[in-house]
Amino acid sequence: MAAAAAAGAGPEMVRGQVFDVGPRYTNLSYIGEGAYGMVCSAYDNVNKVRVAIKKISPFEHQTYCQRTLREIKILLRFRHENIIGINDIIRAPTIEQMKDVYIVQDLMETDLYKLLKTQHLSNDHICYFLYQILRGLKYIHSANVLHRDLKPSNLLLNTTCDLKICDFGLARVADPDHDHTGFLTEYVATRWYRAPEIMLNSKGYTKSIDIWSVGCILAEMLSNRPIFPGKHYLDQLNHILGILGSPSQEDLNCIINLKARNYLLSLPHKNKVPWNRLFPNADSKALDLLDKMLTFNPHKRIEVEQALAHPYLEQYYDPSDEPIAEAPFKFDMELDDLPKEKLKELIFEETARFQPGYRS
């Protein structure tokens, strides 16, 4: 834990890192770190609560700039109880001085990944967590956004079992017609939660990839272990087919990539493993919904509104309290091709509203 900075004593240090967030945020305490930044909790002297502050230093890398800009653009436009918001952003007053960006968010005690390492969940908890994931996802999908990296560590939890989806750095506007060349190379989302079509096709992607990830998360809540822990690309596919069985001819016809289709045709026939054999203690309604989410063919996979209306979630289902976005989200430009200098300018502009004396 960093010592509390005395008023006016300059930035606090946390594990050798400068955290320049005073005077409003003090009493910093280390939480963890990701690929390009550290997260601390801090005391907000204005709202009198502890908050989470993520320090991001992305400006050396085009990919990190892209992810940072995506996350900020999306989260500043989203407003939903099951999606983490941005409360404040701290950065230098000029673009030349801006080396880091500090993002202030609600402090959540833990995440689903940490929880599943230590606790076996009751059916009631599984049901409530799944409902909140789908409630947040309904809003995301209504904005025409794909999260693309749903996994237990991106689901934040607090002691009252509130759940918030975080990390929109890989999110995209849904565009089933656009052929994202190089899709697989830039697709760094965790393999275990990846839909089979991501490994088999490169053309376009749809909201059904997020539903697949939610199915993987439900299976993990039922058993405290990942359902498809593939060691590499082909191993991942083999794990999936080992449980779902061989795809039907109709399902194979959806695979545009001939090499991928021929690979699947070359494999020995596998039978589907019954879900109640894998999860003998699970609620039968939970397994019915799991089956509809972990469907090989993305066109037959359940959609988020149908999933919310499934009998497993009937005690929570309330369409009048499951809000959607006001308007579909649009990125003005494809960020993939922009140089990091341009992305830095866009991050600077996007964060201006939090600067003292800002006038829109």
Rank of each mutant, 00 (worst) to 15 (best):
I243A: 02
R225V: 02
W192F: 09
H232V: 01
C254D: 08
T185L: 02
S213E: 09
P58A: 15
K285E: 12
I74F: 15
A327E: 07
V49Q: 09
V46D: 15
K138Q: 10
T110P: 15
A219L: 05
S320C: 11
H310Q: 13
L222A: 07
S223G: 12
R50K: 13
Y317F: 15
G16P: 14
T118A: 08
E303D: 14
R50C: 07
G22M: 09
A143M: 03
N158Q: 08
D20M: 02
G357A: 13
E341W: 00
N253W: 04
A92L: 02
L338G: 08
A325F: 01
D235L: 09
G34V: 14
R79H: 02
A352V: 12
A52R: 06
Y233A: 01
Q119V: 03
S41M: 13
G136N: 01
I255F: 14
P311H: 14
L170I: 11
L343C: 05
A9K: 09
N27M: 01
H61W: 12
I324K: 05
A327Y: 00
T68G: 07
L237G: 10
D318I: 08
I74D: 05
L150C: 04
E96M: 01
S142I: 05
A2I: 00
A42N: 01
K73V: 08
I165W: 06
M108E: 10
L157F: 07
Q62G: 12
L289W: 02
I217F: 14
L146N: 09
K99G: 08
A2W: 00
K203E: 07
L290G: 02
A5N: 11
Y205S: 13
L134H: 01
D88I: 01
Q119S: 07
D337M: 03
H120F: 02
A260V: 12
M199P: 04
R24D: 10
I324W: 12
G37M: 12
F329R: 04
H120R: 10
S153G: 01
I74E: 10
G169V: 14
D20I: 10
S246T: 06
S248W: 08
K270R: 04
M98K: 15
H310N: 13
I72N: 14
P339Q: 15
I84S: 07
S246G: 02
K259P: 13
N47V: 13
Q17S: 08
Y193R: 09
I240Q: 10
T206G: 05
Y358C: 12
L308M: 14
Y193L: 11
Y30E: 02
L278F: 09
R359E: 13
S57W: 08
I133T: 00
K344M: 15
R67K: 15
N253C: 03
R353L: 13
L157H: 02
K300M: 15
L237T: 08
N82D: 11
K344T: 10
S29K: 04
V304Q: 06
V46P: 13
V188A: 06
L258F: 04
E220K: 11
R70S: 13
I256C: 07
G242N: 08
S29Q: 10
K151R: 01
R135Q: 03
D149I: 00
G169Q: 05
P229D: 03
S248A: 09
D318Q: 01
E334K: 14
P339L: 12
R353N: 02
G32V: 13
I240F: 15
E186M: 02
H299F: 01
D111M: 01
Y25P: 03
N123H: 05
I227S: 11
L294F: 03
K117W: 10
Y317S: 11
L343T: 10
A325E: 13
Y113A: 05
K114S: 10
D88N: 13
I86G: 00
N45Y: 14
Y131H: 01
A52P: 07
F183R: 06
L218H: 05
K272P: 08
Q355D: 10
L267K: 03
Q97C: 11
L137E: 07
Q66W: 10
I347P: 06
E33D: 13
A219R: 11
K285A: 07
N276D: 09
I140R: 09
I211A: 10
R67N: 03
E109K: 13
I227W: 06
S29M: 05
K203L: 11
L75T: 02
L163V: 07
P319A: 08
G204N: 07
V188I: 10
S248C: 07
Y36W: 07
Y205E: 09
S223F: 07
I255W: 10
I95S: 08
A282K: 04
S266F: 06
A286E: 03
R24Y: 01
L346W: 01
M108Q: 00
P319D: 04
T351E: 12
I140G: 07
I133P: 01
N271C: 05
G182K: 06
L335V: 03
V21H: 01
L338Y: 06
I227E: 01
V101A: 12
I324A: 03
G32K: 00
N201W: 10
A52D: 13
D210S: 09
F329E: 00
G357F: 04
G204L: 08
A174G: 08
Q249E: 02
M333W: 07
I209V: 00
T185N: 12
L278M: 12
Q306G: 02
I133N: 15
L335N: 13
I90N: 14
H232L: 15
D106I: 00
Q66P: 13
V21W: 02
H147D: 07
E349M: 06
L289E: 04
G357L: 11
L313C: 02
A325S: 13
I217K: 04
I31Y: 15
